[in-house]
Write a protein that binds this DNA or RNA. Structure first.
Lengths: 121, 121, 121, 121
DNA sequence: GTGGTCTAGACCACA
DNA sequence: GTGGTCTAGACCACA
């Protein structure tokens, strides 16, 4: 489940875990009501520090994507997918800003649009 | 010149300064041969520690965008703009990756393309 | 490991440290994946200021020779040796220039070639 | 005489001046007894700070290449060329060290020797 | 514990 | 005056 965690990446491990969970929700591998692996389970399985996993779960919880059920574990919330969609939409300005940066440095509109078209096809 | 530095931002101050200089080079506010403000001058003007400014200048120097002229100050290099262009092109995959992320979360191709078209117009 | 650091040399301490690490990578004393001594560890071992060591590590990082693994330390990158090889090749003109200087001052071609042959044997 | 001074070079100006004088001695453009331009003359001719020129002359004087004649100016010494030859010979180990560095990084003996042969031909 | 950033302030070479 | 290096020491994010 978390086999692709790269300890050498510049992206913090807790963030990689959170991103992986989001990805699984987006692609319906995890659906509302599904249970996530326990912190302890993941630690012994992956060797990742429990604090790190806890931090990832904290972040997902504060985003409303997962929620604890006392004594039973963490579960995907009912609205998880909608929340991810809203989050993605809120990041459109980020995309605009990056494209603007590249354009300002002289990259042509065609190159920029092609790079994006490749992604959405 | 550096009035937009935000000490409370998550982006390191030295990086904000470096980004601002790049922006000024991209938009021809700074052209080859132009002198940058001195470390001490910026310090007294902004209250930022000289070491922090030095670190920004170090980064710009190692990128080849500016160069010291001993005892006289830092100057924009001849190829600064070309270097920035090359750097921008190398960031196209970043743009593709971001667009892919948004698409995966359900943002429509139209919305994504429009966000980018706004930027390059 | 860094016993040869000379605080009184004209070569900056941070650069001496960086050179020593490069040397260890070239000679396979440090191989990809190896951990470098921690900033604090080196400080207490050598008495050198942590910022100075940090600056050496920063330089090696920006060259792509080492990389941080958050919270765990600095590690030698996979391509470190290849990067050092490329850097060395780019310094051949330096060698030519130095040889030219000596020749211009009257040092004989034989003496110059012998000095170099001694090195590559 | 000093038209090739490059204020933007990484080499200090005083050193560029000294190197230029050495070059002129090596190539017999300046021979023993020749007078060097006065500090004041050079300053008004080149715009270079008088302290900088003085520092270059100081260095050449301490090497025994030029000497003051009270009230008359600086003159090339009798042994200037021999001194330059001796200095060059003393730099042979520098050449060996550089060649060793490149070899240690994997540059082939052939490439190294060719780079040097180009210089002494 | 580990690296990354930052402030405060000193000293040096160069112009 | 100008950048480059360095020490001393603090605080933060991450694991």
């Amino acid at each position: 489940m978390f086999s692709m965690i790269d300890t050498h990446s510049r992206m913090p491990i807790f963030q990689q875990i959170a991103e992986r969970v989001k990805e699984m929700i987006r692609s319906d591998i995890l659906v509302p009501g599904d249970k996530l692996p326990s912190v302890r389970g993941l630690t012994s399985e992956t060797g990742i520090n429990p604090n790190t996993i806890q931090k990832a779960y904290d972040e997902l919880t504060s985003m409303g994507l997962i929620e604890p059920s006392a004594g039973k574990g963490m579960f995907v919330t009912k609205n998880a997918k909608e929340i991810l969609y809203a989050e993605a939409k809120s990041r459109l300005p980020e995309l605009t800003a990056l494209a603007k940066d590249l354009a300002a440095a002289g990259v042509s509109p065609e190159e920029i649009l092609n790079a994006v078209k490749d992604a959405v096809k």
